[in-house]
Design a protein around this nucleic acid. Structure first.
Lengths: 358, 358
DNA sequence: CTGAAAGCGCTTACAG
DNA sequence: CTGAAAGCGCTTACAG
């Protein structure tokens, strides 16, 4: 059976008040720093606090004030660098503002998502930042919304939910990548995409198609493979493309997790990048420059996504009735070598060519 | 100014009690599930809960019970896959046990570490799992310990702190890697290591030296470079080795972050792995098999480290006086190709050769 | 400016 | 088995 919890420090505000010879109200006033306490008493209280090593109990304060200053954050997997960096971005802004973060790792499982949201409700969180696992089922988020919890959606479109959002320009980012491949001379360009239930996959596909049309190239359904945003899906998709009727000469992979699988197929079959197949992947990851050839990527401003989302949430907490904001951030195409860049010239590893998407 | 916080759901236990025609004590008893309530009342209460959509306020419960069921977790950087996976391991066990996690990302900065620990104290956390930034200064952890907070150290040795620990067999893991290189025929084997303030670096170096001695090879100080466990350090170290007086034929990198830098130097200078230099790195990461050649690594049981640490903490919370436990987990050497494996035979990508360290 | 008192939403001895 | 009451550690009107 659980023993009674350790009481880290027996000292309460009452002890401080007694020692300083004042009421707890006065101690509270000193702590709040809002003034209204004579210098003498202020001095006495501070002394007592120091002598006793007192620090306020956050739980008690939270119960009394209606503001918990806890923010729930829901991502699909903190082990994916993309989400880890977003969380760090969120944290940098929120901790500055005195908020605590409760992290919910859903692994894109609806049951986990629901469980996390119930926890958030029970904790009376001040707000929630989330990347919805499935835009077609947002009923649990509606529950939060009905309860009056400020919400900010990141990365993915939250379906019919009317909330602040922070996203990247997915379509134009994909289009820019495809256009780059076209400029490099590729014509048979394939796409490994994600599930239709996730907006980023849909938008990236749209950008892909738009760029092909703009280049006067046909849209070949055989060259669009659903990789489910997973590693195995990336593997399967790459195989389908390479063994299919219309073998492409270049591929855009819509996220880094699928790229992992695609590369596995490529390596297992001794396929050469970019000579046999050129490759561009969404998401810059630390290892991209170390791949041979270095991986050309569509880099998302991950920290910025987190920071902006955190700021939007803070604003929403201040002004619940303000009009809803949708922030779109730009991406960068970092041309390394997997896209065929410099095939004709000598390659310099580590070189970075930054291009605005659109 | 912050507005009054949203009250997610006005319903309190009092409302439920009123609706069910019982006292709050009875509602509380039903909720606790410890029995002692007649079926009729139990029924009425459950009905009222369902009708009102009631859920208990975790803050209030936490204040009343002395047990917050919050665990603080301190890692140096959640963006490093090694730590992200450990956190996921911790979370899987703790959430099962009804605990919440408060994550502290220190970025190996002592000020951040201190700030996080003060937060943990104010939150009256039930326990803390931590990877100490610097074993030589653990005063802030002693503060936690004096306050009676159960502690479990992971990954790194916590200096003179007497707490439960979960570590890997660092010395033998490093020794195993070096022995493997020796078996492959390498004689001039270098080490890129971390700072002396982090025990894993010291232990890995010891294992490295031990293996050299065991193989009858000399220990050459020029072949031991301090890479500071950072990417830039890995780059600098690799350069020092390749441009130094005693150019090695093989290198062991003591963590994956430094390997990133080492690879950068290698690629920039057109150095061939493994012909010019063989490479083994600590930490398996998702991209290791996708590198050319695939990276041979010392894989740590990351999820297991987290899970074991969480279990130790739960046990410690139950029995604060139990004797201190030190758990050492084994690693696996995953021989891919960067170590020169199969240089003479044809390589099959993706093949995994698992060897027990020790 | 200061303090006594109420109250945040629960749980838990204590009676009955 | 059930309820009235106290109390967890704070903050905040309300008087003075």
């Amino acid at each position: 059976m659980p023993k009674e919890n350790a009481v880290p420090n027996g000292v309460t505000m009452k002890d401080v008040a007694a020692r300083a010879g004042v009421s707890t109200a006065t101690v509270s006033r000193v702590l709040s720093g809002k003034g209204g306490v004579t210098p003498e008493l202020d001095q006495k209280v501070r002394q007592a606090i120091a002598q006793l090593g007192y620090y306020p109990n956050a739980t008690a304060r939270r119960l009394r004030q209606r503001d918990t200053r806890i923010v729930g954050v829901i991502v699909s997997d903190i082990q994916i660098p993309f989400f880890a960096s977003i969380v760090v971005g969120i944290e940098s802004v929120l901790s500055e503002a005195g908020y605590l973060i409760l992290l919910g790792n859903t692994l894109d499982d609806l049951a986990n998502e629901r469980k996390n949201i119930n926890t958030f409700l029970a904790e009376y969180v001040s707000g929630v930042i989330f990347a919805p696992a499935d835009a077609s089922d947002t009923t649990h988020y509606e529950k939060l919304q009905r309860a009056g919890v400020p919400l900010v959606a990141i990365d993915r479109n939250p379906g019919k939910l009317e909330v602040d959002t922070v996203q990247i320009a997915n379509a134009s980012a994909a289009a820019r990548a495809v256009a780059h491949l076209v400029e490099e001379g590729y014509q048979k360009i394939a796409l490994i995409t994600g599930p239709d239930s996730i907006s980023t996959a849909v938008d990236r596909r749209r950008g892909y198609e738009r760029a092909l049309v703009a280049a006067g190239l046909p849209i070949d359904p055989d060259l669009i493979q659903d990789g489910d945003y997973r590693t195995e899906g990336g593997y399967r998709s790459m195989r389908a493309l390479m063994e299919g009727p219309h073998r492409p000469t270049a591929v855009l992979s819509a996220n880094n997790v699928m790229t992992l699988g695609a590369l596995q197929y490529i390596h297992e079959n001794g396929i050469n990048i970019p000579d046999d197949i050129a490759l561009i992947s969404f998401d810059d990851i630390a290892w991209a420059p170390s791949l041979r050839p270095p991986l050309t990527v569509v880099a998302q401003p991950v920290h910025e996504i987190g920071r902006v989302a955190a700021r939007l949430l803070l604003e929403r907490i201040e002004e619940p009735q303000a009009s809803i904001k949708h922030v779109t951030l730009e991406t960068r195409l970092i041309a390394r070598a997997s896209c065929g860049c410099g095939r004709s010239s000598s390659l310099k590893s580590g070189r970075k060519l930054s291009l605005q998407s659109k």
